[in-house]
Each structure stands twice: as C-alpha cells, then as structure tokens.
Amino acid sequence: MKRLLLFLPLVIAVGVGIFLAAGIGKDPTKLESARIGKPVPAFSLENLNDPTQLLDESVLKGEVALLNVWAEWCPSCWDEHEYLMWLSKEKGVRIVGLNYKDQRETAFSFLGRLGNPYDEIIFDPKGSLGFDLGVYGAPETFVIDANGIVQYRHVGVVNKQVWEEVLQPVIQKAKGNS
C-alpha cells in the first residue's frame, strides 16, 4: 500500500507531460474572439470609396460574409491580399473590408496596386469599430453569418491552407444554419 503511494509522483509527472506534449507546436498567442455568437457591434462609419455614404452593421446582413480587417501599413495584409482576390473572384465569397487605422490615400494606392476584392469597404481611421470587435492586430478575418452574427475570427494571414481547413468549413456551417 505504501509502495503504491510512491508511484504518485510518477503518475503526476506523466499527466503533466501529456499537457505539455499537447502544447508543443500550438501557437499560444492565438486568441479566440470574445464576440463569437454575438452580433457585429453597431457602427456608423464612412464608406472608403464614398465619404458621403455612411455604412452600418446592415452591410453584414443577408448573406454569409468575410469581414477582413486590413491596412496599408500592415505587412501581412500585402501578403494575403492576392489570396483574397482569388477568393472573391473564383469562389464568389462576399468580402467586406474594414480599413483599419489607415488613411484614404494610402488605402487607395494599396488597392490600386493589388486590386480590390471587397464588396464594401468600411473606413475606420480611428479604429473604433476595430476596438469594438476586439481587433488587436491586422490582418484579422471574421466570418459573419446572414443574421450578422460573428461565427469565427481568424488572426493572421489568410491563405489556401487557412481557407480549406478553417474558413471554408465555418462558412459552410453558417450557410447551413441560415
């Protein structure tokens, strides 16, 4: 009986080891959005292309869409843009852009060079909508269902792997629900 007690440290060590093993290779910095399952926060911001037109949360309703947070100053946004173009053109995904803490001129030069995959672009120079959404660094991509509810948030670059393994299944599910 007493001998069995001496095995306790070994058992605990093995248990801790399992958790440590599970942690390897995972990126501990990735955070889940606090807004999942909640509607996109209310906002009223200018359309990037048309300062006189105000956009609100209704642009994200009616159809499953990606809400992509980007800016000209964000290096990774340059990397993922080509792929967003492909998603929009080839896959017909509705993508709404959130131009985050940027300036109109630089945003236009960015789109002029790389093309425009966005159906609408919300202009958020102060980052207020970004703050309400819990954006902590561009690029981030949200999946919004037809009712305007946040289903998923991806932090970092969107590429083929992310699309196939993460975003596409979420979009399929969102489409199925609504």
């Binding site: 955070l31 889940e32 959005s33 606090a34 807004r35 703050f131 309400d132 959404l133 819990g134 902590y136």
Partner: peptide
C-alpha cells in the same frame, strides 16, 4: 475590455 477582447 473582457467583453471586447476576451478573458485573456
């Protein structure tokens, strides 16, 4: 802030 960014 937790409501925006999570418990983290």
């Amino acid at each position: 802030l937790v409501g925006r960014f999570g418990e983290f």
